[in-house]
Design a binder for these strands. Structure first.
Lengths: 352, 352
DNA sequence: CTGAAAGCGCTTACAG
DNA sequence: CTGAAAGCGCTTACAG
């Protein structure tokens, strides 16, 4: 079966170097010679051994996707993201290996030390990320999905939180909402340790609030249905005049809605809810489907791999790309109720 | 940085063969010699180059996870499954590459021909699967997640549809339900081309119906919220006496519930709904949380990789393992209503 | 345009 | 217990 170059060379009556030139199209070869070689390859069923090639050329054409195995529950678009990354790599002649590693640096050091991969795509980047230091120290080419705090010399693609939040706020603003709440996941203890997306989204939100002149309210909640319910409770009891909620957590968003409903509020008649950065798979699961800013998962996977491959090819690095989520209208947002009372009262909420 | 064996050998004053013996612990080495070598390795920061090792040993210690890129929407536990597979591989010193390929055979032939992987884990296996033939023809070691129709000589792990369906039916049966409906995805045209899980689950369901003596009703629906709504409509209009529904589609299950609610039925007071083979992430998203048979995704990933590695190690193949889903009680199932009328009437449905 | 040869960094019989 | 040597299947200067 799997013939080698040497066998092809013998069959074609040429040297194995010439076979290599034909296989890689890396040097001019006389048409006649090329034909003989191609015949022999077809006849013998030649397939280039990628391991030998990797050893000789010092390029494995394998890149690793590094992501935290446990920490964050990955969103609903993670699978799409990964498939998109793997396919983009494949189309460029690369393979993608999966390295679900803890956020500690030693495991990553060990893995890159094996020399299996040409580069690394780092997901779920922390603002201060030990893995980035490992990759720098080991001279491993890499690109980030997300951003650390210090970006000097780094190649990355990320979500455009500014534009995503702006579109989200504008959507609610356009519907007349002025009493907004932003719900994020926990932003942890020290800000420099916290999760980039929450921090950046909240920052963008604060800027928008300053521009538009509305009050900043940021609440945190757990990443599941119960978390969403709890924050609904908090909103109803401490800020009953709220008419619009932006939730930056696709697992909590449906719980938030059902929590509001349980308190006798109607969605969207009394309160509009917008799920920010979610897969539409998740946001359309509930009834009504949630209005959402959908995550650009597949695009991030593709652009991330492309950016990394550019680094590996020694070409000019791609400029950082920031992609906004896309507004997907659903049934959870609507015009602010006319004559909304500061304190909601289910028995008296005429539609606009 | 990355020192080679030859450098370690020189530094330790031994041959590179001896270094190899220490690194791989593959031969007895005198304690004194070993110590010198280990010292040198630590001093020079030696890391074994996995590509050179692969070429020399003819084992890359890489396995591929092959899954269809587009066809089926992968379930919510796909990410867990893949992470579990990657981690299991990693713990055994292997790497996992992702091959999202179309179901056509040529692409897979091309990929295995590169000699990059020692074996393949095949997901979303069809009853009649061209990829299985490719792997057989190319002598590639492989294991299946799922089962094709002809299993002679194959290594596989799969869901135990018999036990899963039995537990699901028993759950509803124990609550007094006798008018059941099974909802699956489309079972396509010719049965031999169809999707294993639907076929096996339906088969198991038919056996249970024969044993228990209840009528077999199998409906099909699209894999999303709208599909669920449509089948709810169908149930209400054509089989209004139904009190229990088993849904084999996690994306349609919530839509089914909301479809029933829209028709004035209460869940679970009028109709109980059980989501069969879903991630709890999805089934707990809605309110009430769905009672579910949760998919054994992580276990399948782990066992699948272990089964494959056994094949690669030339050890006795693991016997096929079939894993049942686990019942996770939720709010969508309850006792059959007392004195249930054959035709539900929202105005007259006393609780049991 | 083509070939001989060194070399990528290991593993593994084979000798001793 | 240790070493010399062949070899895994390619790539890539270097000659010609």
């Amino acid at each position: 079966m799997a013939a080698t170059m040497r066998e092809v060379a013998e069959a074609a009556g040429v040297s194995i170097a010439t076979v290599s030139f034909v296989v890689n199209d890396s040097k001019r070869v006389a048409p006649e010679t090329r034909r003989k070689i191609e015949d022999a390859m077809a006849r013998l069923g030649f397939r280039r051994n990628s391991v030998a090639r990797a050893l000789a050329s010092r390029r494995t054409r394998i890149v690793a996707l590094v992501y935290p195995a446990m920490e964050h529950k990955l969103g609903g678009s993670a699978m799409e993201f990964i498939t998109s990354a793997a396919r983009t790599a494949g189309e460029a002649g690369y393979h993608l290996v999966l390295w679900p590693v803890s956020n500690d640096a030693d495991e990553l050091t060990e893995l890159v030390g094996q020399g299996l991969v040409d580069g690394v795509l780092l997901m779920e980047v922390q603002l201060e990320d030990a893995r980035v230091e490992v990759l720098r120290a080991t001279q491993t080419p890499f690109a980030l999905i997300g951003r650390s705090a210090d970006l000097t010399g780094l190649v990355y693609v990320d979500i455009d939180f500014d534009r995503t939040m702006e579109q989200a706020v504008d959507h609610l603003y356009g519907l007349g909402h002025r009493h907004l709440v932003l719900v994020t996941g926990s932003q942890a203890d020290a800000s420099f340790r916290s999760y980039g997306p929450y921090v950046r989204a909240a920052d963008a939100y604060r800027r928008l609030a300053a521009e538009r002149g509305f009050a900043v309210v940021v609440l945190e909640c757990g990443q599941d249905t119960d978390g969403g319910r709890a924050v609904a409770e908090e909103i109803v009891s401490t800020r009953p005049w709220t008419t619009g909620v932006l939730v930056l957590n696709e697992f909590a968003a449906p719980g938030l809605v059902s929590g509001l409903l349980r308190h006798g509020l109607r969605v969207p008649d009394d309160v509009s809810v917008l799920s920010v950065l979610t897969s539409t798979e998740m946001s359309t699961l509930v009834d009504p489907a949630l209005t959402a800013m959908s995550s650009p998962g597949p695009e991030l996977g593709e652009l991330g791999v492309q950016a990394l491959l550019r680094v590996l090819d020694g070409a000019d690095t791609l400029p950082p790309r920031l992609l906004p989520g896309v507004l997907v209208p659903g049934g959870s947002t609507g015009p602010v109720r006319a004559g909304a009372a500061p304190v909601p009262d289910p028995s008296c909420t005429p539609r606009s």
